[in-house]
Nucleic acid binder design. Structure first.
Lengths: 214, 214
DNA sequence: TAGTTACCGAGACCGGTAGTCTCGTCAAGA
DNA sequence: TCTTGACGAGACTACCGGTCTCGGTAACTA
């Protein structure tokens, strides 16, 4: 028949409180146990919920964890558009580093990556997440190139991977700082530490002397 | 008593064939199942060996995997010392990228990192491995700085993390090339793309002129 | 040759996990 | 009141890392 007609919903509705309880419990556990894996049993128990309720709404444990994390940390890193490439990049770096450092994001994200290492489902989700961040940075760089702030022959993909590679490397290994001075230094390193402050720095030789101060 | 005297070895000796069989089986499984986890059972079965034999000689599964990988890929990336920073860095990048791409290293290393994400023991081993690579690069950069090829105010640790961060990011995500042109581009990007090919590109440091000829 | 020692393959076993399935219950609409 | 589907609870399967035990066997010693 015309089963196209979506049969009106009957029966008990989804319990929104349970959804929130699951996400909250997941985020809390992600944040607490730094590095230690978070089990489904633990999440369900902490949320006061049956495992089946969890699997009814999410396809895997990884999906729950990612959902719990992005649920809050979504808009922590806005994409700047100030009209200056260097300022945009510096702002993005600063916001990214800062968001990655303050709890509960830091331990949660670390645990999430560890889980992704053995959960292909979660790995996929995480890949699309990072790809969207890469796309944000790509837009920033291309705007800058259109304005002539970036030489046309610089490899944008290379720059993107240098930035996020640096970030993830330091974030996951945790052997070096990810603070505001670092954000400025990585910006200068990517765009050319010569002529850092402002103005086109061409004529490679000339500008160097003036700025290397800061 | 003088138990200091090491009692001469008695009893059956270690079976070298079993050792090799285990390492070969481990490497083969690491290489075959890209990303898929490798279980101890599988290794033991493939090597025709009891699990206990494996645990008699290695403290954990991760140790076996790392041993299997470094057993062969040890000296694939020699540390260059040509007298030119740019040439050294380019050589290191090229060798690193090349070694990471050719089988069986590539899938095996990827699997190894995934295993390390949930095996703290293996994570430690892998950390010391990467730290030694970082130390190699640090020496190269410091030699270059001593020769005046690198401005004294450039952050060496930042450069190291930019390089290896970029490498691991591309290697693990696999979304961009790690070939020879990329090795040259990342070198130029780190050392300054201006005046990349030849000639001194800045006036600030006098020494630069004399050596960068390559 | 006989005895001792320690490695060998095999596999049972333990604790823990992801995901499935079933049960009796409960809320929302017809 | 009856149907539907979500709910909490937890048993269950399948798998894995790591431990333990077993009978057998190679290498060395007396």
């Amino acid at each position: 028949m015309n089963s196209k007609e979506p049969r009106p919903h009957t029966g008990r509705r989804r319990n929104e409180a349970a959804r929130r309880a699951i996400l909250d419990a997941a985020l809390g556990l992600l944040a607490d146990a730094d590095g230690a894996p978070v089990s489904v049993e633990t999440i369900a128990r902490a949320a006061g919920v049956g495992k089946q309720t969890l699997y009814r709404w999410w396809p895997s444990k990884g999906a729950v964890l990612l959902d719990a994390l992005t649920d809050r940390a979504a808009q922590d890193v806005p994409v700047p558009d100030t009209g200056s490439l260097r300022r945009d990049l510096r702002a993005l770096a600063t916001a990214t580093f800062r968001a990655s450092q303050r709890p509960p994001a830091a331990p949660a994200l670390r645990t999430l990556v560890r889980e992704a290492a053995r959960d292909p489902h979660l790995a996929d989700l995480l890949r699309t997440f990072t790809e969207s961040r890469r796309a944000d940075l790509r837009r920033i760089l291309q705007r800058g190139r259109d304005r002539g702030e970036l030489p046309a022959d610089r490899d944008v993909e290379l720059l993107i991977d240098q930035f996020y590679g640096f970030f993830w490397y330091r974030f996951l290994l945790g052997h070096g700082p990810l603070d505001t001075p670092t954000a400025e230094r990585i910006t200068d390193s990517l765009l050319g530490w010569a002529g850092a402050a402002e103005g086109p720095q061409e004529s490679s030789t000339a500008a160097t002397a003036s700025i290397s101060t800061s």
